[in-house]
């Protein structure tokens, strides 16, 4: 095993079962048992097919491709919330996922309470969060809203809160799934600066983005997924022109 590798996918496939019969619940399952059991084994939807790549430590990689191509599935596999159907996924290092906006927040809690909750879920200790709280709140620029329930927040404010927590983690591998596009321009800039900072300090960054500009600015490498397979994998400067020509 090469020590400089952070993430390694070896012939990874991921398929989701199509549990149509489960929609009928336990009752339906029991009353249609033979059919239901057969269905469990057979119907599957392939989201990723035979994907292989190595991501080195400190690399900044963008996953690009259409909606439904399998980008979030890839990040879920890296974050180890999903398990591959075949092939092996190896991840070396502490993963900090920023997978879903407001995921892990609770709408009845205040911003401040959510910082604690989210921070602990993402791997910080309560003590560390208490120490960093002022700095997190400062970063978010949410002002007095920080003590309001986040039910009252706009999606932009939620992304501020979410990113502010992540900005104070000490990640080895950072996953960012389409969350940079939310929030106002000033805050987007701040997030990108933070990511650049992480990058300089050697964090491995994997991000999903549809913004060609962002990818050009932030990433060394692009993995383009089309039809659940890798269409192209290479330096940003090589992949982006082909990608642009393909879609524009």
């Amino acid at each position: 095993m090469n020590k400089s590798i952070a993430i390694q996918f070896n012939r990874v496939s991921k398929s989701y079962p199509i549990y149509s019969h489960l929609g009928a619940g336990l009752k339906g399952f029991i009353f249609n048992l033979p059919k239901a059991l057969k269905g469990l084994a057979r119907e599957r939807f392939t989201a990723l097919e035979n994907i292989s790549f190595d991501i080195n430590r400190g690399e900044t990689v963008a996953f690009m491709g259409r909606n439904g191509a399998g980008k979030s599935t890839t990040l879920g596999l890296i974050a180890q919330v999903l398990k591959s159907t075949s092939g092996t996924v190896a991840v070396h290092g502490r993963v900090s996922p920023l997978l879903e906006l407001g995921g892990g927040f609770h709408s009845d809690l205040t911003g401040r309470e959510n910082i604690l909750l989210n921070g602990v879920l993402l791997g910080l200790s309560r003590k560390t969060i208490k120490e960093k709280e002022d700095s997190i709140i400062g970063f978010s620029e949410l002002g007095n809203f920080i003590d309001q329930p986040i039910r009252m927040y706009s999606s932009g404010m939620l992304s501020r809160l979410g990113f502010s927590v992540v900005a104070h983690l000490d990640p080895e591998i950072l996953l960012v799934d389409e969350v940079l596009a939310v929030g106002d321009i000033a805050f987007q800039e701040k997030c990108k600066n933070k990511i650049t900072e992480f990058k300089k300090s050697g964090v491995t960054i994997v991000l999903v983005s549809h913004s060609i500009d962002d990818v050009r600015k932030l990433c060394d490498r692009v993995i383009w997924i089309e039809n659940h397979k890798i269409q192209m994998d290479g330096p940003t400067t090589e992949v982006l022109p082909v990608y642009e020509k393909y879609f524009v």
């Binding site: 879920g76 974050a79 996922p97 995921g103 892990g104 879920l121 993402l122």
Partner: peptide, 9 residues
């Protein structure tokens, strides 16, 4: 659900 889909704990 949103927690479970997001973080591994």
């Amino acid at each position: 659900a949103s927690l479970i889909k997001k973080v591994n704990f």
